Simulated scan of single mutants.
Amino acid sequence: MTALELEAGKTELIREILRIDNRDVLDRVRLEIRKWLSISERIPCSYTLEDVKQRLSITEADAIAGRGIIEEEANDIIDNWI
Rank of each mutant, 00 (worst) to 15 (best):
R67H: 06
A65M: 12
I64F: 02
D62Y: 05
I58R: 11
E7F: 10
R30A: 06
D79T: 03
I78F: 02
L37T: 07
E50V: 14
I77N: 00
K10F: 11
A65N: 04
I78Y: 03
A3M: 07
R19C: 11
K53Y: 15
N22D: 00
W36R: 15
A3H: 10
N22C: 06
S38A: 12
I58A: 13
I78Q: 02
A61H: 05
L4G: 10
R30E: 12
I14T: 11
A65L: 14
A74M: 01
I43L: 10
K53L: 08
E72I: 00
I78R: 03
E71W: 15
L4C: 12
R55L: 13
V52F: 04
G66H: 05
D62W: 02
A63R: 14
I77H: 00
E73D: 02
I69Q: 03
I20T: 07
E71A: 09
K10L: 15
I17G: 02
I43N: 06
L18S: 09
I70R: 15
I39K: 05
A63I: 09
I14Q: 07
N80D: 04
T48P: 00
I14C: 03
G68E: 02
K35S: 02
D79C: 01
V25A: 08
I39C: 00
R55C: 10
N22K: 12
N22L: 06
L56T: 04
A74Q: 03
R42A: 06
D24F: 11
E60T: 14
S46E: 07
M1C: 12
L37Q: 13
E41F: 05
D79W: 00
I39Q: 11
I64E: 12
E50A: 14
N80G: 00
G68Q: 05
L37C: 09
E60H: 13
E32Q: 12
D79K: 00
E5C: 11
T11F: 12
S40Q: 09
E73M: 00
K53W: 14
S40H: 06
C45S: 02
P44Y: 13
D62N: 07
L37S: 09
I58K: 05
R23Y: 01
T59R: 10
E50F: 15
I82Q: 04
D76R: 08
E50D: 13
N75E: 10
R30G: 06
G9Q: 09
A3R: 08
I20S: 04
I33M: 12
I43V: 08
A74D: 02
L18F: 07
E16F: 03
R55D: 07
L26T: 10
W81L: 07
N22H: 01
W81N: 05
T2Q: 03
L4H: 13
I39E: 04
E41K: 02
R30H: 05
E5Y: 05
I17K: 02
Y47A: 08
N80H: 02
D51A: 07
G9E: 09
E60N: 14
E5M: 06
D62P: 01
E71G: 10
R19I: 15
I70A: 14
I43E: 05
I78K: 00
T2Y: 08
A8G: 10
R67Q: 08
W36N: 15
L4S: 13
